[in-house]
Amino acid sequence: MSWPQLGSRHRSGNRFVGRELGRVEPYWKAGTPIVNQVVQTTVDLAAVANVGIGDVLQERFDGTAHWWLCREGVRLGRLNWSLSTFEQKPWQAAPMLRVDEGDLEVTRLLLDPSGRVINCGGILRPKDR
């Protein structure tokens, strides 16, 4: 299936495709944060190349300082969260919910100029909900 482009093409030629979710605030308030993408330098390109819109990936905290997206035990990439992400900020009505174990429904893919999947993001749903 062909998905619409989200936003503009990057200078590198990369582009996001997928489902437009609108404002992120309602998702945060519902305790289901949006993950835009994982840290590009941590992406396992061979593993993420087979990810598609609608796939469900596992999100896990490693017990020390990092959150990872995985599929069948293989790490696809690291989320850009840190422990301070979950601290109350002056501009927030409430701090972001810390999700140590959840499922990410893929709603967006980052494609390189040749159309190969090189990153992904989506809606994170905690396991305890």
Results as ranks from 00 to 15, higher is better:
residue 1 M to T: 13
residue 1 M to S: 08
residue 2 S to F: 00
residue 2 S to M: 06
residue 2 S to R: 09
residue 3 W to K: 01
residue 3 W to Y: 11
residue 5 Q to W: 01
residue 6 L to E: 04
residue 7 G to N: 02
residue 7 G to Q: 07
residue 7 G to H: 06
residue 9 R to S: 09
residue 9 R to H: 10
residue 11 R to S: 14
residue 12 S to Y: 01
residue 13 G to K: 12
residue 13 G to T: 04
residue 14 N to M: 05
residue 16 F to L: 12
residue 17 V to I: 14
residue 17 V to M: 02
residue 18 G to V: 01
residue 20 E to I: 13
residue 23 R to L: 13
residue 23 R to W: 04
residue 25 E to R: 10
residue 26 P to A: 15
residue 26 P to C: 15
residue 27 Y to K: 03
residue 29 K to L: 14
residue 29 K to T: 06
residue 31 G to M: 02
residue 33 P to T: 03
residue 33 P to N: 04
residue 33 P to R: 04
residue 33 P to K: 10
residue 33 P to F: 01
residue 34 I to Q: 06
residue 36 N to W: 02
residue 36 N to I: 14
residue 39 V to W: 03
residue 41 T to D: 12
residue 42 T to Y: 01
residue 42 T to L: 07
residue 45 L to V: 12
residue 45 L to N: 06
residue 45 L to M: 13
residue 45 L to W: 07
residue 45 L to Q: 15
residue 46 A to G: 11
residue 47 A to N: 08
residue 47 A to E: 07
residue 49 A to M: 12
residue 50 N to F: 03
residue 50 N to I: 03
residue 52 G to H: 05
residue 54 G to Y: 06
residue 54 G to N: 12
residue 54 G to V: 09
residue 54 G to F: 08
residue 55 D to H: 06
residue 55 D to M: 03
residue 56 V to R: 07
residue 56 V to L: 08
residue 57 L to K: 12
residue 57 L to E: 03
residue 57 L to T: 12
residue 59 E to V: 05
residue 59 E to T: 05
residue 61 F to R: 08
residue 61 F to L: 09
residue 62 D to A: 13
residue 63 G to S: 14
residue 63 G to W: 14
residue 63 G to I: 15
residue 65 A to S: 15
residue 65 A to R: 10
residue 65 A to E: 10
residue 66 H to N: 14
residue 66 H to D: 13
residue 67 W to Y: 11
residue 68 W to S: 14
residue 69 L to A: 13
residue 69 L to Y: 02
residue 71 R to H: 11
residue 73 G to L: 04
residue 74 V to M: 13
residue 75 R to L: 08
residue 75 R to W: 10
residue 76 L to P: 00
residue 76 L to N: 02
residue 77 G to F: 00
residue 78 R to M: 12
residue 80 N to F: 00
residue 80 N to R: 00
residue 81 W to S: 05
residue 83 L to Q: 06
residue 83 L to H: 08
residue 86 F to H: 11
residue 86 F to Y: 11
residue 86 F to V: 08
residue 88 Q to T: 05
residue 89 K to A: 12
residue 89 K to T: 09
residue 91 W to D: 08
residue 91 W to V: 05
residue 92 Q to N: 05
residue 93 A to V: 14
residue 94 A to M: 09
residue 94 A to Y: 02
residue 95 P to F: 04
residue 95 P to V: 05
residue 96 M to D: 04
residue 96 M to N: 06
residue 97 L to G: 00
residue 99 V to C: 12
residue 101 E to P: 00
residue 102 G to W: 00
residue 102 G to T: 06
residue 103 D to H: 12
residue 104 L to Y: 01
residue 104 L to W: 00
residue 105 E to W: 09
residue 105 E to F: 07
residue 106 V to T: 07
residue 106 V to K: 00
residue 108 R to P: 10
residue 117 V to A: 07
residue 117 V to D: 02
residue 118 I to T: 09
residue 119 N to Y: 03
residue 120 C to S: 04
residue 122 G to E: 06
residue 123 I to C: 10
residue 123 I to P: 02
residue 123 I to D: 09
residue 124 L to C: 06
residue 125 R to P: 03
residue 125 R to L: 09
residue 126 P to W: 07
residue 128 D to W: 15
residue 129 R to T: 15
